[in-house]
Design a protein around this nucleic acid. Structure first.
Lengths: 214, 214, 214, 214
DNA sequence: CTATAACCGAGACGGTACGTCCGGTCTTACG
DNA sequence: CGTAAGACCGGACGTACCGTCTCGGTTATAG
């Protein structure tokens, strides 16, 4: 899926005179081998040097493509990495359903941990957040693509438990979801403490203690 | 306090052959008027354009100083902004003590909210986190200077409540502190939802519900 | 003529690790309008401020080009000015042939005088000589491009006279050529005495007196 | 001898407001050990890196002096090196008098050759000429201190020969002096051909051939 | 079955910023 | 007060990338 369609071109773009009037590039013309090579190159460079040092120039060289090809398909480095990030973490979308909220939550955390331990997702996320702080387009896309969608995953998980009667009637599910999500990001971004099994156990226990029936 | 003394020069520096062997500049030679002008200029530029676009070049121009003067006293842009960030948020160190954890927590959140609403602290924090993801020096300094120290502030607040008997004997204070802190950062960094009075109320209520006595 | 191809990149270059291994830029990619604009800007600045104060930065600004464009096509400021100098003085190559050595020599001196009176050739020559004193590449290029080639012009002039029988059989033409050439440079570089009609007359008379037949 | 007294402070100097009104530094206050150390350091650096790369900063460091001390006693780098150059070549002032112009001339050339072979005089001379091309003060000082004075040395040598009857009555001594002097400089500055015994012989023979009696 | 339009690599180009060096001035502390 | 030390503002260095722009060569519909 071509994510960037939802991240509009930078507003202050100088050379957009012609671009703005013509139709956007037709995706069906896109050479997907090139497209993928660019994303893979971007992933390798983020892994090796971090988001900030992965330049468009270096990505093009690493992918064996021309810079223009990158600019043709993504309006900014942030758009490119948002697509990459989305595809990296989408594998955590596995609809775990082990019959109990605690188990589902543990499985979800395990999956997230694995992704962040084996991919450059962490540095990409940090970079996107930084870019978002001065680019409203990136901020909007980040909120929409990542926060809203992915929080929904956990909410669904809680709602299944609610339907099964595992959760108190008056529980504040929004707060619980936020607690889980923000705890994850806090650890991922800061790296000040390990994101490990023990952390997962503590988090699940404490969150559930606040909302579990009885 | 000369913070940057704790953020060592970048390891991968190319031209550090000589610098690495000589002593750092003696702080007592520092012209504090210039030093302050630079920090204020950095704050103005972060406010106006965001951390990522506040270049050393622009800071020097805005401060009316030479670039070299900045490089003399701070090993990197991150070190400069870490000092600035520390001084900005240190005003939240006010040891609120209103006799009850809930009131103290509300006062603390209010203060944090004010700081982030009236200073460029948010974009600076996002930028520092991004820089930390590829620079271990920044990561270490961030963890030590910000996370550890400031979490301690909230912990003390809880401990006073514990001593007063407001908090359950078996409460997990670490988890509570982490919950408060990560909730704050999550909102600050993403900006996906407002950091307002209502959020503060919800956070205080939910956190205390988990640890309050009875 | 792309002179600079013969002036190799500086040997002591620090960042040449990669550059040294890749091919030089392909001349057929060169935008000759830009190339000419840079040379003209360099000439204007040398004229106005002298060789030493004509910085690459200022040349780029004056030419309306980027600095990188200059560095792409010339390995050093000296290489750029050597190309400019060569093109300035190449107009003295006019193959004067008035049927007598004395007349040819006078015509040649007049042409040289005009060039140095109306172009920044003097300050450029002085600058190149200074650069040559610490850069073997510049020294070699200067010797080859200027000294050897241009001395040949005068030698040919003498040889035509020799063939016409104007010059003694045992005359030392090399010494005569050196005398003419070094007298010119001495006056041009020092500017301690005028390079005028009277000087030309004296020089021609004295040199010919030493080698003329009879 | 404090040469620089004759090279006035640069005219375009920006910060000379106060300097221009106060008395010049009193030479009797000068610490001659410091003065000499600076000149020796300047010589070493010119020798090692050439005139252009011998910076005031580096000279101060090499001499173990402060930059200000250099600026106190010399108005510019050119003034410093002009003093150094003068002291270096003054040793050729030896009033050779071997009873014949040819012998005197050979002795003089030998001395000059030795000086240029064992001191950084060549790169200093080239640098001074370059500086002179955009700084009238340097140009004037160069003409006065070097050209006029030193040409006088050779002229005296010829005049002694004239008095002894070795030289033609109608010989143009000025031209002969200029020929000798410009031939020397041409070779020294360009370095395109060796300044050796053979060159000296040729020069002496050819010059004398033009002016010798009979 | 061409032709023509878009893609693609390569890389030149005008710029901005980097981090360093040095120029020339000024201040501090020592002797 | 001369000096060593070095902070300071300014400006240039040579490099890295930015985002735009040709330039040829290739690919793949559309006529």
């Amino acid at each position: 899926m071509a994510f960037h369609a939802r991240l509009p071109a930078r507003r202050e773009s100088r050379g957009s005179r012609r671009r703005a009037q013509v139709a956007p590039p037709r995706a069906d013309r896109r050479n997907s081998a090139v497209h993928d090579a660019i994303l893979r190159a971007a992933a390798r460079l983020a892994e090796r040097y971090g988001y900030g040092r992965a330049t468009i120039e270096a990505i093009a060289a690493e992918a064996g493509s021309g810079k223009q090809t990158i600019y043709r398909w993504w309006p900014s480095k942030a758009a490119l990495y948002l697509e990459l990030y989305t595809s990296l973490v989408s594998e955590a979308r596995v609809h775990v359903d082990e019959g109990a909220v605690a188990a589902d939550l543990r499985a979800f955390l395990k999956r997230v941990f694995e992704i962040f331990a084996t991919t450059p997702a962490r540095t990409i996320l940090a970079g996107l957040i930084a870019d978002a702080s001065h680019d409203p387009n990136v901020a909007d896309a980040l909120t929409e693509q990542l926060v809203r969608r992915r929080k929904h995953l956990i909410r669904v998980l809680f709602e299944r438990g609610f339907d099964r009667g595992e959760i108190r009637k008056d529980a504040d599910l929004d707060f619980a979801v936020d607690t889980v999500y923000s705890a994850i990001w806090f650890r991922l971004l800061l790296g000040h403490a390990p994101f490990d099994q023990r952390f997962a156990e503590d988090l699940v226990r404490q969150v559930l203690q606040g909302i579990a029936a009885r």
